[in-house]
């Protein structure tokens, strides 16, 4: 069964059709790609999947459950986490807090537990903190635990944002242009990081990316959209040689 199924999804902004009759399914355990030129509707697809927009028509099914009518945080609780094109960390809270707060859906205690500092609260808080440290350790970010994201270099901020998404314990991780704004050595680090995450976490990764080398290197399956419609899908090899992709997305230049 597919982890994510997008069924004939259409989304309109006023008169503009940003996504049109889209059908995509993402198989578990893989790294998949979503490509298309600027304004093709890629981020809109991610916004729809993460519940930030509600599709005008069609359904999104995550792990067998229709996300129609769910709020973004409920979709997240189903196991969908994401990063953003321009990093959206909570800049004035420590990295550790950033990681801890994104476990909000499984805190397991209430306001009164927090105020009364009940046993349950103490237990859960120490578990949450321990899990956060473990994650930071695994991603070798632990040195930055008490730093503020605004003081970190861009590449590290990206990594922290990915760590924050992982702390949700997602089944599906959406990466929105993770290589944007990174220099070439950071891009190599990123490629290794994504590979490592894919190998070591029970998570399926779906990424939007403009750096073709990153996509071709990482993804086993790629969907290419244009004007909100699928124009091609397949393995990197197939995409590379698909005439529709070449003309719509790559223009005359080959990669």
């Amino acid at each position: 069964m597919s982890l994510l199924e997008i069924k004939s999804m259409t989304h309109r902004f006023g008169g503009l059709k940003a996504v049109s009759e889209l059908n995509i399914s993402i198989e578990p355990g893989r790294v998949e790609g979503l490509i298309g030129h600027n304004g093709a509707g890629k981020t809109t697809v991610f916004n729809l999947v993460s519940g930030f927009y509600t599709p005008t028509e069609g359904n999104i099914i995550v792990d067998g459950q229709d996300t129609g009518g769910l709020k973004p945080h409920q979709v997240t609780a189903l196991g969908v986490a994401r990063t953003f094109q321009n990093i959206r960390l909570w800049k004035d809270m420590t990295v550790l807090d950033n990681i801890r707060i994104s476990q909000h859906h499984r805190l397991g205690y209430s306001f009164f537990d927090a105020v009364m500092r009940t046993k349950r609260y103490m237990k859960r808080e120490s578990e949450i903190t321990a899990e956060a440290y473990k994650l930071l350790e695994e991603l070798s970010l632990v040195d930055f635990a008490n730093e503020y994201p605004k003081n970190l270099p861009y590449g590290t901020q990206r990594k922290v944002e990915i760590a924050r998404a992982l702390s949700v314990k997602p089944k599906l991780l959406l990466l929105d242009e993770p290589a944007a704004g990174l220099n070439s050595s950071d891009v190599v680090t990123l490629i290794n990081l994504v590979k490592w995450i894919s190998d070591n976490f029970p998570v399926t990764i779906w990424m939007i990316e403009h750096h073709m080398d990153v996509v071709m290197e990482l993804c086993s399956h790629i969907v290419c959209i244009d004007f909100g419609e699928t124009i091609a899908e397949g393995t990197p090899e197939e995409i590379r040689n698909n005439p529709a992709v070449i003309s719509a997305y790559l223009g005359d230049d080959n990669i």
Binding site: S50, G51, F52, K71, P72, H73, T76, A77, A81, R82, F84, R88, L89, W90, K91, D92, M93, I101, S102, Q103, H104, H105, R164, A165, V168
Partner: peptide, 16 residues
């Protein structure tokens, strides 16, 4: 404060 610093990120990253 997460809502204060970035409400959209808060909602999408599991904060109700």
């Amino acid at each position: 404060p997460a809502i204060n610093q970035d409400e959209i990120a808060a909602e999408i990253m599991s904060v109700n």
